[in-house]
């Protein structure tokens, strides 16, 4: 796999962040950089204001259930510098709370409500944290992997057409 054209490689983004926040990046890959949750809001604010990075637009924010943890993936971009940055944050599975970006980006509001609705991640400081797609009172968060699965409802059905019934391990 190769990087997207605008994507700043994880190594380069790590070097820039390292020069201002020494020894804070624990993990990075070809495209993303993992930042600790206690410095999350501080680093994103700095990324938005620093002209070297100029993360003026929050392109996309989404969450993933990794079974032991939750992950938040951010895609920030600079329209002037023509660069995109991938950031990953790891959250606690039992009590997932992360600071909201609504004070920095208007565009975070609806996207964070979507993550709250479908994954049950709380956004600290969000002005209007309500469910958005599902109704108030809906039980559970569907995008969590332990949400009632299709297999549980129909144990006889194979998950994929080319697999035998009953053999459903990944």
């Amino acid at each position: 796999m190769t990087l997207n054209t605008l994507q700043l490689p994880g190594q380069e983004l790590k070097n820039i962040i390292d020069s201002h926040f020494p020894a804070i990046i624990s993990n990075f890959s070809l495209d993303w950089v993992e930042i600790p949750i206690d410095k999350y809001l501080e680093i994103i604010t700095w990324m938005k204001e620093n002209p070297e990075i100029d993360a003026a637009q929050l392109s996309n924010i989404t969450g993933v259930d990794m079974i032991d943890t939750f992950e938040i993936h951010l895609h920030l971009q600079s329209l002037d510098l023509k660069k995109m940055y991938s950031i990953k944050v790891i959250l606690d599975r039992e009590n997932p709370v992360i600071p909201s970006l609504c004070s920095l980006y208007i565009g975070a509001n609806l996207q964070e409500r979507e993550i709250f609705d479908l994954l049950g991640i709380n956004f600290d400081g969000h002005p209007d944290l309500r469910r958005i797609f599902l109704w108030e009172g809906f039980a559970g968060h569907p995008l969590r992997k332990d949400f009632l699965q299709m297999d549980d409802a129909n144990p006889g059905l194979p998950r994929f057409p080319f697999e035998e019934a009953g053999k459903q391990e990944r």
Partner: peptide, 28 residues
């Protein structure tokens, strides 16, 4: 901007697929 964010785990289906829907975000 129509974005597809896909995570794979080696299986025959996406582990997670997120659609970055421009209509939704343009309503901000």
């Amino acid at each position: 901007e129509l974005g597809y964010f896909v995570i794979t785990d080696g299986g025959p289906a996406p582990y997670r697929m997120h659609i970055r829907a421009p209509s939704f975000i343009n309503l901000s």
